[in-house]
């Protein structure tokens, strides 16, 4: 058996795989946060709650309505997105004229309400969500065994991430969005409905978080508190990457996932704090983040 620094190769690749999967979730979440921040100037504290909702809605659909994984993959993000649209339209949009910190506090309160409600409904213990039949088994890559579902999660989230990036960078709609980030007044003067665009952007980012939740459901147990700790990690990732670039937030998310995986292998005690230590190093050397603009 081949060793690298005294670590058996399959173990190394196993941890890298877990890192890559976590990284995919981080990428989906930090991408959404970056898009929301770019256009709305709001740090969306409710992003962890949206992620949790995606998983919980998928579980509820399966348990109470017998709706399986693939329909849930579409339905749950739509439901979470609709909730995001409602939140933006009814409450958040009224706060754009006051200090941006109020937007942060509103989404913090909204996250507490949603998480509190589901803790009452389901309890804090995790609910298992079975891996869909199609993804049973896996591939033997020679140096490691790759479970099919995990391969699917990585492929699907990478496709969605880079699809979103392409949409923002290459399409007409994306160009409106980028223009509105630079100068909302000017874009409005051209007759583009910026408030509508803000609502849809928030809804879209919320549904991305919901999608990450559905993808995560079969890997982690579904629990109302699953969004609480991931959101703080994603905040640190956003600080590390800087919010200037969409691609930057995707790459930072994946990178941090991998670094966490490696830390879990070589120094497990530090695996939960490595992302925060990384953030401190970045702040001291490049205060605006790896991809950020001053």
């Amino acid at each position: 058996m081949t060793d690298i620094l005294g670590v058996p190769l399959p173990l190394l690749f196993g941890q890298l795989l877990i890192g890559l999967i976590n990284g995919s979730f981080y990428a989906l979440l930090s991408l959404g946060l970056a898009v929301i921040f770019g256009l709305l100037n709001v740090i969306n504290f409710a992003h962890g709650a949206f992620y949790m909702l995606g998983a919980v809605v998928a579980w509820l659909l399966l348990t109470y309505f017998g709706i399986g994984y693939f329909p849930a993959l579409i339905l749950a993000p739509l439901i979470v997105g609709a909730l995001g649209v409602t939140l933006e339209k009814t409450l958040l949009s009224r706060l754009y004229t006051v200090d941006h910190l109020y937007g942060l506090l509103l989404t913090f309160g909204a996250a507490l309400i949603v998480e509190g409600l589901f803790i009452n409904l389901l309890g804090v213990s995790g609910k298992p969500y079975n891996t869909p039949q199609v993804f049973a088994g896996g591939f033997n890559l020679g140096f490691m065994f790759l479970p099919a579902y995990r391969a699917w999660v990585i492929v699907a989230s990478l496709l969605v991430c880079f699809g979103t990036w392409l949409m923002i960078e290459r399409t007409k709609l994306g160009s409106y969005l980028r223009a509105a980030v630079e100068s909302p007044e000017l874009v409005r003067a051209f007759g583009i409905r910026v408030p509508m665009m803000m609502t849809l952007t928030y809804g879209f980012a919320a549904s991305l978080a919901g999608l990450a939740g559905v993808l995560a459901a079969p890997i982690y147990t579904v629990s109302p508190i699953m969004g609480q700790s991931i959101i703080i990690t994603v905040f640190a990732i956003v600080v590390i990457g800087g919010m200037g670039s969409i691609l930057g937030s995707i790459l930072t998310g994946l990178g941090v996932g991998l670094i966490e995986g490696l830390t879990r292998l070589f120094y497990p005690e530090a695996s939960s704090v490595v992302v925060f230590l990384l953030m401190i190093v970045i702040l001291l050397t490049r205060p605006h983040g790896l991809f950020g603009r001053s």
Partner: peptide, 16 residues
Amino acid sequence: SWIMVIIGVIFVVCVM
């Protein structure tokens, strides 16, 4: 844990 919901509602009402 309803207290979490109550705290959340107070947050939202205060901010709005």
